[in-house]
Nucleic acid binder design. Structure first.
Lengths: 133, 133
DNA sequence: CTTAAATTAGGAACTATTCCTAATTTTGTT
DNA sequence: AACAAAATTAGGAATAGTTCCTAATTTAAG
């Protein structure tokens, strides 16, 4: 746990506190307020280590940089296809869905529980309605 | 439909033919075999237009460049978190899941049917088992 | 045909991320 | 505590993927 460097500790703590799915850059700016000497590459490197160690989640975005998420209670994401905004929702992936995937893809891939569904947020939707007139 | 430029037609046809979730670069290389004068920026620009027009899907990857997918029959994706390999599966998103998301996030976002579930493919899994010993 | 609008090729610019190197910090051993 | 080995750092250069810019060309409309 705590045989982590000071820098890695700070980075993990920031991500734990933020409930906003921050980008690497946002994390960097926040950590800088605590340790102004930290370098961007240290932040990126440690974020990757934390993902590798499954302490945080990476969320790949349809637009803009990746976002990160502390893994506490299991939750899933709905992501806006246009602007990339992320919404959390809480729901156990149904067994029937898991079974069906297993049936179709057995021997190829095994699931890791985390579910992402695409949508269009109402902000982007109302923008589009204006354009399309 | 066909008040598209010659270049855009070629790009769409290539994506239709390929069942491999190609990257922009892969599409560019294929189109080049037909029209060797086409430029990379034309390929990128038209891919974005086709996504905007909902003729193709963009798949954001956990690793490496985005991939694209012709929208014929509805299908969803399971994506390897480590290497980004994409597997198709066919399944209607259950109504209970849709309803639950609607209940939790109503007024914020509306779904667009396309579902992405993360996993770890067996190739990456067997690699990891070797490391972890 | 002529003019306007859209699209192109080609390359520069940009954004996000990784890689490199020498210096510093941490860990383990005695 | 003193030392060597291993891990990590800061800082910046390099890379990958994508978008943007411009002048030239193509297509569409009157």
């Amino acid at each position: 746990m705590s045989n982590y460097s000071k820098q890695r500790e700070s980075i993990l703590n920031i991500i734990k506190k933020l409930k906003t799915h921050p980008t690497a850059e946002e994390i960097y700016m926040k950590v800088k307020q605590i340790d102004e000497r930290i370098s961007r590459s240290t932040v990126y490197r440690n974020i990757n280590i934390l993902v590798e160690n499954a302490e945080i989640n990476k969320i790949s975005m349809p637009v803009g940089p990746d976002r990160y998420d502390y893994i506490d209670n299991k939750h899933n994401h709905v992501i806006c296809e246009k602007c990339g905004k992320v919404f959390d929702f809480y729901y156990e992936v149904p067994k029937t869905l898991k079974n069906e995937i297993q049936r179709q893809l057995s021997g190829k891939i095994s699931l890791t529980e985390s579910l992402e569904i695409n949508g269009i947020c109402y902000e982007c939707k109302s923008k589009k309605e204006k354009w399309e007139v």
